[in-house]
């Protein structure tokens, strides 16, 4: 019985064996779930993926006309660029802000203020994404129209700000943990060498915590890539190659969410939406893989 682990003689109490079995099942099931989900998504899209879909067009054409009567076209380039541009802009806003806040909370706050801050940040994390979408749709929409004199405020910028607000709490809490995990002995050593607070931060704390900080950034990005509701509501949801922060765009996730309810089950369009799901899977997998490789590279250096 491999699943019960090595033979450990006869004096292992039954309760321990049961607990061990349970924990192993939990571990194995989490792997099974991932494979199960992937299998399901893949199965729904497989027929069309291998029979009929022009993969080149799917990835490189900006023309997304899944419901055209005469000439259906399934090009996702605009959606891919939409997802990446809104995420990139969101990270541009969220990373400096999130890391800065994490440094402030862990290095400059009094213990009392730190607790208050953490509560506020947790509250921020608890806001459902549909509420962010609503804020984007109303408040931020008006603000962008006024500030930039834009015809419509539902833009990439709007979506990015919403995504940034959603990823900041993740970035702050993970980055703060990473900074807190730096041994105090490093601080003491650097301070005894005459380092100022800033020198301590950028010469010692940031290098020492870089793996955790990188994880914080990547998890923030993963949150942004996967987010659906807020970008659906805030970005204008219009298939469009983005040209700048004020372009209206559409993302891969929002496309699935908006269209899946409208399509005939099993049809071409339905299957394409699942293929987009596979694409999203691949993107997140690639992000995680890159993160792993980067972190391993850092460890070796």
């Amino acid at each position: 019985m491999k699943i019960l682990g090595k033979n450990r003689g006869t004096n292992v109490p039954l309760s321990e064996t049961v607990i061990e079995l349970f924990i192993r099942l939990c571990g194995i099931s989490s792997i099974l779930f991932v494979f199960g989900i992937f299998f399901f998504v893949f199965r729904e899209g497989a027929d069309f993926l291998f029979g009929g879909l022009d993969l080149g067009q799917f990835l490189t054409s900006p023309e997304w006309y899944p419901t055209s009567l005469g000439n259906k076209r399934y090009g996702t380039l605009a959606l891919i660029l939409g997802t990446f541009s809104v995420t990139a802009l969101a990270m541009l806003l969220a990373v400096p802000f999130g890391l800065g806040a994490a440094i402030f909370v862990s290095e400059f706050c009094s213990p009392k203020l730190r607790e208050t801050f953490k509560i506020i940040i947790e509250l921020l994390a608890a806001i459902p994404s549909v509420v962010w979408g609503f804020i984007g749709l109303t408040l931020m929409n008006q603000l962008i129209i006024k500030l930039f004199n834009a015809p419509i405020g539902l833009t990439m910028l709007n979506g990015s700000i919403m995504l940034a607000l959603m990823s900041v709490p993740i970035i702050v809490s993970i980055a703060e943990d990473a900074l807190k995990a730096v041994p105090d002995s490093y601080r003491e050593a650097a301070e005894a060498l005459g380092a100022t607070r800033w020198q301590l931060i950028y010469r010692v704390l940031l290098p020492a915590a870089k793996n955790g900080l990188l994880a914080a950034v990547l998890l923030g990005a993963a949150r942004s890539i996967g987010e659906t509701m807020a970008v659906l509501m805030a970005t204008g949801h219009s298939v469009n190659i983005p040209e700048g922060p004020l372009s209206w765009i559409r993302t891969l996730t929002a496309t699935i969410a908006a269209e899946l309810g409208e399509v005939a089950r099993g049809g071409e369009h339905y299957q394409v939406l699942f293929i987009i799901g596979i694409l999203l899977f691949t993107i997140t997998f690639a992000v995680n893989l890159i993160a792993d490789l980067v972190i391993k590279g850092i460890r070796k250096a």
Partner: peptide, 25 residues
């Protein structure tokens, strides 16, 4: 004032940067 603490603390920097730390600050 040079200070040597009870537990050895190599800062998470290269050997060179460890020694160059104080002069650089």
């Amino acid at each position: 004032i040079g200070m040597v603490l009870p537990l050895p603390v190599g800062l998470p920097l290269s050997i060179y940067d460890n020694v160059a730390f104080a002069p650089r600050t």
